[in-house]
Design a protein around this nucleic acid. Structure first.
Lengths: 209, 209
DNA sequence: TGCGCTGGATAGTACCGCTATCCAATACTG
DNA sequence: CAGTATTGGATAGCGGTACTATCCAGCGCA
């Protein structure tokens, strides 16, 4: 497949494809002559993943690069898979604020309440702390009851997520990382639709107006 | 409170406060002389909300402006509250892609499966469609079983969210809109922490290492 | 043989969220 | 009442990001 065909099938403009190549998001094609290179289905797929992560999940090019690099690594053990996943999840959280704290009191309280492990080195712990602090400052603090409900719901979601991860280690990383990321917006949309559905029910609004 | 005091108590730099005033995110203070104005606690609170929406939720200044404008409106009936909330939720979804379609097949299938109302005019429906399409293109499609699990979990979350909305109409809008937005990152963080907790359990990893 | 695509490089653009500077008017301070 | 600091208001600049455009020489294909 020539680059022009890759552009056509993927729908991504040529300058953008070149940009992704430059930035190392897209691996170069197999060179066949000094001004020719051959691209394959994996390039089409990779482009779809890149666009999903950037456009739908809203990640930066830098974050996508990190995640794609992690996907390339084939874990040699379940523990290594776990480690790679942890680092991938870490890059999902916007790292604009380094938040180099060593204790996250709100997150710790929440996790203890949920009976989950509190380890301040997890990036998601810092993210939780920031979110809880912001909610508090904005006047809509997350009460313990809210934490209970949210925690239980997310546990069900996570349970399902883990079950769906394929056994085969190489596929597992990509599936888990990309899946976690792109299913996030699905969850957010479903939450909003549930709001609207429940509110409509409550108001006795039956259908479109 | 002078503007310098507002800057001090809020922690937001003076140029940024001026910027928010210019952009209409922060209402002007009560003018007391041609070069003086008086700010109150509501300005401090407003700044906290703005920072939470921009820094933690990741909204654009334009989105924040729209949402704050909606908050100002005092609904006169539950139906109007519902309408305002719907529009607020609409602005939460990134509007970079207009997606002016009139049918969203993936979203419709998902909502029918969940027994929820499908109305293509809801912004969240378009968002769901985009997320499902991206997941599909990226090779991690949301299966019907996943939709079931996610839908049920989000329904529990939404149920709780609605219960917590105060009766008083003026407070209700702000609470519902800001709460929906800032609790989103809390949910995302809890999902990732649930992943890690369950994965650690499964691997027999008991603590930090 | 010539036309056009290709890889590669470099430069430019558009937007966003601030941030900095300047100014004149005015308020407080001694 | 003089002097200094602060304020509102306006304008301009900055730094980052994600592209987008242009140019070029060298092929490859017809």
């Amino acid at each position: 497949m020539k680059i022009s065909e890759l552009v056509e099938t993927s729908g991504v403009p040529l300058p953008t494809v070149k940009y992704y190549l430059r930035e190392g998001l897209l691996p170069p094609g197999r060179s066949t002559g000094r001004t020719r290179a051959e691209y394959g289905d994996e390039h089409v797929h990779r482009l779809a993943v890149i666009r999903a992560l950037i456009e739908v999940v809203g990640l930066s090019v830098q974050q996508v690069r990190t995640i794609l690099a992690l996907i390339e690594t084939a874990p040699r053990s379940p523990a290594e898979l776990f480690d790679v996943l942890g680092r991938a999840v870490g890059t999902l959280t916007d790292a604009s604020q380094p938040a180099p704290a060593e204790d996250y009191p709100r997150a710790r309280a929440a996790l203890e309440r949920l009976g989950q492990l509190y380890d301040p080195r997890y990036a998601a712990v810092a993210q939780l702390e920031r979110a809880l602090a912001a909610a508090e400052a904005a006047g809509v603090p997350a009460t313990p009851e809210r934490i209970d409900v949210y925690g239980a719901a997310m546990r069900q979601v996570a349970q399902f997520d883990l079950e769906e991860i394929p056994e085969e280690p190489a596929a597992a990383v990509e599936y888990a990382v990309v899946g976690t990321a792109v299913h996030g917006p699905v969850l957010a949309a479903l939450r909003r639709l549930a709001h609207q559905d429940l509110a409509a029910q409550r108001l006795g609004i039956t259908g479109a107006e």
